[in-house]
Amino acid sequence: MRVVRLLGVPALLVLVWWAVSGGSFYLPSPDRVAVAFAETWLSERLTGDVLPSVGRLLAGYALAALLGIGLGVPIGLSPRLRATLEPVLEFFRAIPPPVLVPLIMLLAGIDTPMKVLVIVSGCVWPVLLNTVEGVRALDGVLADTCRMYGVRGGSRLRRFVLPGAGPQIMAGLRQALSIGIILMVISEMFASSSGLGFTIVLFQRQFQIAEMWSGILLLGLLGLGLSLLFRRLERWVLSWYYGSGAARA
């Protein structure tokens, strides 16, 4: 029964796809896409294009997480910093990263550092702003408890601030993940010669439509896989949060 529920909707979509695809050059049938998938990706493209792209995604994401949390905590703890920086942060977060790419290219060149920087430039915002919010909203009674019992400095950070802001920080990290996948593709649309996103765009330009669709499929599976991994991580880190019923199911 559970299998039916999990696979039911995707199977239905594939059937609809089969029915609809027929004449159009731009919508090949599922079996053609499946064949193209096997031929294209289960080859040296896996190590040559897919893995480097995913590697850059993870590097950019990790950097964004470090930056976002590292800056978010001090900003969240200081009302004065918050008041001063909030308008500036909102200004920068509103700039779509693709627009910044030419600027980033000037600063960081055209290789891996540029691509990682593009990913960071978009992913850092949800992490940063959610961290600030989570830290700002820490419980006052717990804060008083810390003061009374001498929980200060690094100890306070480890035992109070970070776990307390944890749910909000994880929400920011979740948002950053989906943004990261999009930016991974976008970063490869400029000055690239390899990578998952680049290859999909190349197929589109070469009119290799079945291969292009197979690439899009792979992107979707990648996103799904990463999101499932993230959920697992979240459940582990925030087990207390889910257990307490504070989280919505």
Partner: peptide, 22 residues
């Protein structure tokens, strides 16, 4: 002038004074 080291407090809001992740 600040919370003295040998003083302990029990707050009214017991739920919020305990660390839920511990």
């Amino acid at each position: 002038t600040g919370p003295p080291p040998r003083m302990a407090v029990v707050f009214q809001e017991y739920g919020r004074s305990l660390f839920p992740w511990m």
